[in-house]
Computed example of a mutant assay.
Amino acid sequence: MSLKRIEQHRSFNGELCKYSHYSEVLQCEMTFSLYLPSNEEIKKIPLIWWLSGLTCTDDNFSQKSGFQRLAEKHQVAVIIPDTSPRGENVPDDEAWDLGQGASFYLDATQDPWAKHYKMYTYITDELTALASTLVPHFSGKESIMGHSMGGHGALVIGMKNAARFQAISAFSPILSPSQAPWGIKAFTAYLGEDKASWKEWDASELVKEASVPPVLITQGSQDAFYPKQLEETVFLKHAREKDRVVHYTKKEGYDHSYFFIATFLDEHFAFHMNYLR
């Protein structure tokens, strides 16, 4: 195994580690971060996945959100994948909202993206197998959360694996990517022109499926990308029609930044722990 621990930091009595490894799924070197709480009482530990947004790496959440305090408080492990495959041989784009740092957490089918851009399978299969070996006393219970593009990823992965994830939450998520400029651009590049193929990666379509875990969504009213990229109407309409457990709240005066995330992260951790205990 190529797994290497490249950073280690004590934080709130727990430990944050950064790892690198070669991904067979993505065909490139990848990094991810993992926080383990102190677990002084040697209890079973659940796991929360965090997916970051456009242009981010696994460092943004670990360095800006202050999540470690909450993970230690609730005695939960947190894993943070990178946002895309990376490297000199990995296709990229000059724009910031496509290519490296902008995977949209799907499995691409179109050239030149298809060889490397398979983040859905990487997270749900390869990184999942790694995580299970790195979390001592893992309870087997998982949930997933994310921000913006990562909010889209959390919803899609969570709903496509409803039997696995106990709950889903998102800050400022792209809820209807098939109808938003970011999503249309990415889906056209990664999946092709056939919009029928987009539906399996669109949260507003997936929320109509047979089983959906409980969902919490928090949106800032002063978000510069709202409503153009982050319109909620279609998703909430479909959720209501199917009687889904979806809590959508808009926070007055807050923007798209990690200041917003840090302010309401406590609410999200409490929501997840209701289902992970």
Rank of each mutant, 00 (worst) to 15 (best):
residue 277 R to W: 06
residue 87 G to W: 06
residue 191 L to N: 11
residue 60 N to P: 00
residue 46 P to T: 01
residue 166 Q to F: 08
residue 61 F to W: 05
residue 52 S to Q: 05
residue 244 R to F: 02
residue 84 S to H: 03
residue 16 L to P: 02
residue 252 E to N: 10
residue 242 K to F: 04
residue 63 Q to K: 12
residue 276 L to K: 12
residue 9 H to T: 15
residue 84 S to A: 07
residue 24 E to D: 11
residue 29 E to S: 02
residue 183 G to K: 08
residue 22 Y to T: 04
residue 262 A to L: 12
residue 235 F to P: 08
residue 36 L to F: 02
residue 17 C to T: 02
residue 61 F to E: 02
residue 75 Q to P: 07
residue 178 S to R: 15
residue 114 A to W: 14
residue 239 A to Q: 08
residue 260 F to N: 15
residue 268 H to F: 14
residue 102 A to D: 08
residue 234 V to Q: 15
residue 225 F to N: 11
residue 103 S to E: 11
residue 185 K to S: 01
residue 165 F to N: 14
residue 201 W to Q: 04
residue 169 S to Q: 06
residue 199 K to L: 15
residue 212 V to L: 08
residue 118 K to I: 00
residue 63 Q to R: 07
residue 199 K to R: 14
residue 68 Q to T: 15
residue 101 G to A: 01
residue 73 K to P: 13
residue 5 R to M: 10
residue 50 W to S: 00
residue 126 E to T: 01
residue 87 G to T: 08
residue 76 V to H: 14
residue 131 A to W: 01
residue 220 G to Y: 06
residue 74 H to R: 14
residue 76 V to G: 12
residue 244 R to S: 05
residue 155 L to T: 01
residue 131 A to Y: 01
residue 157 I to Q: 00
residue 257 S to W: 11
residue 66 G to D: 12
residue 27 Q to N: 13
residue 266 D to I: 15
residue 79 I to P: 07
residue 117 Y to Q: 04
residue 37 P to L: 10
residue 51 L to R: 00
residue 7 E to M: 05
residue 21 H to S: 03
residue 50 W to A: 00
residue 238 H to Q: 10
residue 55 T to S: 02
residue 65 S to M: 09
residue 259 F to Q: 15
residue 192 G to N: 12
residue 139 S to L: 11
residue 180 A to V: 02
residue 89 N to C: 05
residue 213 P to I: 03
residue 192 G to V: 09
residue 43 K to A: 09
residue 89 N to H: 13
residue 176 S to K: 03
residue 182 W to Q: 04
residue 91 P to V: 04
residue 177 P to S: 10
residue 258 Y to Q: 12
residue 158 G to P: 05
residue 259 F to N: 15
residue 90 V to Y: 08
residue 241 E to S: 05
residue 13 N to T: 15
residue 21 H to K: 07
residue 169 S to C: 07
residue 8 Q to S: 13
residue 2 S to N: 11
residue 105 Y to K: 03
residue 97 D to F: 07
residue 26 L to T: 08
residue 265 L to Y: 13
residue 248 Y to H: 14
residue 66 G to V: 07
residue 263 T to C: 14
residue 112 P to A: 03
residue 107 D to Y: 13
residue 259 F to G: 15
residue 86 R to H: 10
residue 160 K to H: 06
residue 270 A to K: 15
residue 202 D to W: 01
residue 82 D to F: 00
residue 73 K to F: 15
residue 112 P to Y: 10
residue 195 K to H: 07
residue 239 A to P: 10
residue 142 E to P: 07
residue 57 T to S: 08
residue 165 F to M: 12
residue 141 K to R: 14
residue 67 F to V: 09
residue 65 S to Y: 06
residue 6 I to D: 02
residue 133 T to N: 09
residue 51 L to P: 00
residue 206 L to I: 03
residue 209 E to R: 11
residue 207 V to C: 04
residue 104 F to D: 03
residue 110 Q to V: 11
residue 53 G to F: 00
residue 228 K to D: 01
residue 34 L to R: 06
residue 204 S to K: 02
residue 36 L to M: 06
residue 51 L to K: 00
residue 186 A to P: 03
residue 100 Q to P: 02
residue 107 D to S: 10
residue 17 C to Y: 00
residue 45 I to Q: 07
residue 190 Y to N: 04
residue 166 Q to M: 14
residue 206 L to C: 06
residue 14 G to F: 03
residue 225 F to E: 08
residue 224 A to S: 14
residue 204 S to P: 02
residue 178 S to M: 08
residue 37 P to M: 12
residue 244 R to H: 05
